[in-house]
Nucleic acid binder design. Structure first.
Lengths: 181, 181
DNA sequence: CAACCAGTATATCGGCCCGATACATCCACG
DNA sequence: CGTGGATGTATCGGGCCGATATACTGGTTG
């Protein structure tokens, strides 16, 4: 997930770790955090895999004290890998965590894949919604007042998300028609 | 988290692993999963710590083929530990994951701690809401249409949750007044 | 009645990610 | 001058997930 996010972000510009994290927070807002404890190891993993390279800034004034900031740049392999991850969008992509991150890079995502992700997510949320409806309609003494409230909140939020997804999908379809004619 | 959940569930009755997971799903519905890959190691950890004990069912008919189901029972230390975890409810408790699990055991939670959790959660969600409001009012070109939509969904859902929490809190206060007079 | 499959049940392993912690620098404010 | 807050890189222990393996039970179907 973070691997995908880093690769996506570095399409915008080369960045160092701290910057990547700030930008990610800006994009994801409430939906995902990603700590430095994950970020730096992942950066090294990507570097080892040749998907990103460390660029030492030539300009000495761009440096920061004696301690060098490590600026990472996407390689051709990195771009390929990002496209590949997008193309392989599947069930895990419909997960809460994953979906938000993918949406943040939608402007860089081919229209057909955008549609696949949106529809996959909708299916996933609809399933969850049905589960919650069933659980709420079943009058079981095994579920107390508080849990029922929790399920009610969950049901409302899945219903809301399905409506939101329907709007996004309709918008995509309108754009598709525009492209076609 | 799972440790807390297991301890809470075993207050109802002794259970084996598979049963614990089913019951947890029933309670948490959409909010949390917990896989067997976490469950069984956690069970062993709790057992090592003396918080639960393995009960071999004496009744042979309750057995299941030649393969024994391991039924776990809460010890006095386990009950203590659960109460202790509740008493220590703090900032991590306001997290998405944690809050849902805690709510599932609210009927077993002292009224003052229930209130602390509800109010802590509300603060947390309000903070997120403010962050999203700020991000949405700032007309930045660094945020594209899709990301803005994501933030809009997030804002709506935090607003909705705050209202939901306010209702729960009001209900708690009403009950409190009832107890007092 | 045998073959098959879905559900019940326990368990391990690799890997992602978080929170805590540590350490160092820069800059604005008092 | 010094102190706190933002910038910046890094490690470590531990929680949790998904994939995978193994095996028994009960019901359906050819």
């Amino acid at each position: 997930m973070l691997e995908f996010a880093i690769l996506g972000l570095l399409h915008e510009a080369p960045m160092h770790g701290y910057e990547l994290r700030k930008r990610l927070h800006e994009l994801l807002g409430a939906f995902r955090a990603f700590s430095y404890g994950t970020l730096y190891p992942t950066l090294r993993k990507l570097q080892r895999g040749g998907l990103i390279v460390e660029e030492v800034p030539e300009d000495d004034s761009a440096r920061w004290g004696r301690r060098a900031r490590k600026v990472y740049k996407l390689t051709a392999e990195g771009k390929e890998r990002f496209a590949e991850l997008l193309a392989n969008a599947g069930p895990q992509t419909w997960d809460d965590d994953s979906f938000g991150v993918h949406l943040a890079f939608f402007s860089r995502t081919p229209a057909e894949i955008r549609m696949r992700i949106l529809e996959g997510r909708r299916r996933r949320v609809e399933e969850r919604r049905e589960g919650l409806r069933t659980s709420l309609s079943a009058t079981s003494e095994r579920i107390d007042r508080y849990t029922r409230e929790l399920h009610r909140l969950g049901l409302e939020s899945t219903e809301r998300e399905v409506r939101w997804l329907n709007e996004l999908i309709a918008h995509e379809q309108a754009e598709q028609r525009e492209r076609d004619q």
